[in-house]
Amino acid sequence: MSGAGLLALALALPAAAQAQDFSAGSAAKSWGLLGEENARFEALVVDVLCELGGDCPEDCGGGARQLGLLRSADGVLVMPMKNGQPVFSGAVADLLPYCGETVEVDGLLVGEPEATPAKFFQVQTIRRPGEADARPANRFTEAWAAANPQAAAEGGEWFRADPDVRARIEAEGYLGLGPDADAAFIAEWF
């Protein structure tokens, strides 16, 4: 089964399996998102492709793969699609140091049953069991800057300086339809 097929399978978990209330003790800050609910729980940090398909590199993919949270209370695979920063980035940089470990996370489950088969998770804090203080989930821009020092030196928003984003725009255009489609759009609309 392909990675996309495995992810679709994971997202098809019945809503009833995710119906348990995990808001007790949560200090997550609201973002005012549709269907958001506070959630604090313990979970094993896993490589999603490993968990669903058995493709298991030792280091959870070294930051190049989606990480998941296998919730201790009910065995549900929770998809942490965002960290606590206002930039819309994933949570891999925050979770990778905990690969294969059980952690306590606090954040927001987001989604409406009518629109999404499973709620996604926005991680705001992480800590190992027994640690006094939770760490904020805000490592993305720091990790990006370390991996892209020349682009980071340019300043501004990370996504405008990112070499991968720039290469994709050059090849596919801003609309993803190619530079010719971009030119026609700009000529017609601006």
Score class of each variant (00 low, 15 high):
Ala151Gln: 10
Leu67Trp: 01
Cys50Phe: 01
Ala171Ser: 14
Glu154Gln: 15
Phe190Ala: 11
Glu114Asn: 13
Gly32Ala: 01
Thr125Asn: 02
Gln18Leu: 13
Arg166Asp: 09
Leu33Val: 10
Ala27Asn: 10
Val48Arg: 11
Phe140Val: 07
Leu109Gln: 13
Arg168Ser: 12
Pro113Tyr: 09
Ala28Gln: 13
Ala43Thr: 10
Gly32Ile: 11
Arg40Phe: 00
Pro149Thr: 08
Ser72Ile: 14
Leu34Met: 00
Leu34Ala: 02
Trp189Met: 12
Leu52Gly: 14
Lys29Tyr: 10
Val48Ser: 10
Pro136Val: 10
Asp133Ile: 03
Gly173Val: 03
Phe88Tyr: 05
Gly107Cys: 11
Arg166Pro: 11
Trp189Gln: 13
Leu33His: 05
Glu51Met: 07
Ala184Trp: 06
Asp55Trp: 10
Leu33Gln: 12
Asn38Leu: 06
Gln124Met: 08
Met81Arg: 08
Gly178Asp: 09
Asp180Gly: 05
Glu101Trp: 05
Ala4Trp: 09
Met79Lys: 04
Ala153His: 13
Ala143Asn: 00
Lys29Ser: 11
Thr125Met: 11
Val48Phe: 05
Leu34Phe: 10
Arg65Asn: 15
Cys50Gln: 05
Ala161Asn: 14
Leu52Gln: 15
Leu6Ala: 14
Ala153Tyr: 05
Phe88Ala: 07
Ser72Ala: 05
Ala167Gly: 09
Ser72Val: 12
Leu77Gly: 11
Leu177Lys: 09
Met1Glu: 15
Ile186Ala: 15
Ala73Tyr: 03
Thr125Leu: 02
Glu36Gln: 09
Gly25Lys: 09
Asn38Ile: 05
Asp133Lys: 13
Met1Arg: 02
Leu9Pro: 01
Gly176Phe: 07
Ala73His: 12
Phe121Cys: 07
Tyr98Leu: 00
Gly173Gln: 02
Pro97Ile: 06
Arg40Leu: 06
Ala73Asn: 01
Ala151His: 08
Pro136Lys: 12
Val87Cys: 03
Met79Ala: 05
Arg65Gly: 08
Ala183Phe: 12
Val45Asp: 05
Arg65Trp: 07
Asn138Lys: 13
Gly130Val: 12
